[in-house]
């Protein structure tokens, strides 16, 4: 490696793992919160899924009751820094699916709340928030893709980024 590039690389290597840590905590927290809010009222969760008018009735319970568990599981893995790349891949897939579902509801002229954090169902036509829901999920998707590319971060239980000094964080 050319000596002139070394300082830049070291600086990059020093900051990027911290960026990854921040994204990991943000995405992980969103998953845990979003999943937990969907568990107390299972009937409402089913209604939120049905409001999209996409899933056949037989799949509604699996989506309404299973997805929140998957969200919480992925969130815990991200927060702990364990199996970050698989968790980030699942995050990206889920978010892409949610963006597609919300876009589809928008395109079909439905007036629904995304039910992203519990709730859901029909709302007044002028209180839909499709654009902001898509932008939010898009930002989370970018964060998830960053973690797919660079899963090793600081303050992680397993997927630790190597430090330049060595020490306990080195290797892994």
């Amino acid at each position: 490696m050319a000596p002139v590039r070394a300082p830049l690389l070291e600086r990059g290597a020093g900051v990027l793992p911290w960026v990854g840590t921040v994204l990991r905590v943000v995405v992980g927290t969103v998953w845990v919160v979003a999943g937990s809010l969907k568990l107390p009222d299972p009937a409402a969760a089913e209604r939120a899924v049905r409001a999209y008018q996409l899933a056949p009735e037989g799949l509604v319970p699996l989506l309404a009751f299973g997805l929140p568990v998957l969200e919480i599981a992925v969130g815990i893995l991200l927060l702990a820094g364990v199996f970050v790349r698989p968790a980030a891949v699942v995050s990206a897939l889920l978010l892409a699916g949610f963006i597609a579902a919300v876009s589809s509801a928008w395109a079909r002229g439905l007036s629904i709340d995304c039910g992203c954090f519990g709730g859901g169902g029909e709302v007044d036509a002028d209180s839909t928030a499709y654009l902001s829901e898509i932008v939010r999920d898009g930002a989370l998707l970018v964060a998830a893709l960053f973690l797919v590319a660079r899963p090793r971060t600081r303050w992680a239980l397993l997927d630790r980024a190597p430090t330049s000094r060595g020490g306990p964080d080195a290797g892994s």
């Binding site: 568990l39 299972p42 969760a45 319970p61 699996l62 309404a64 009751f65 299973g66 568990v69 998957l70």
Partner: peptide, 8 residues
């Protein structure tokens, strides 16, 4: 996931 689906 399975347990939650059953419980819910």
């Amino acid at each position: 996931v399975l347990v939650t689906v059953l419980v819910q």
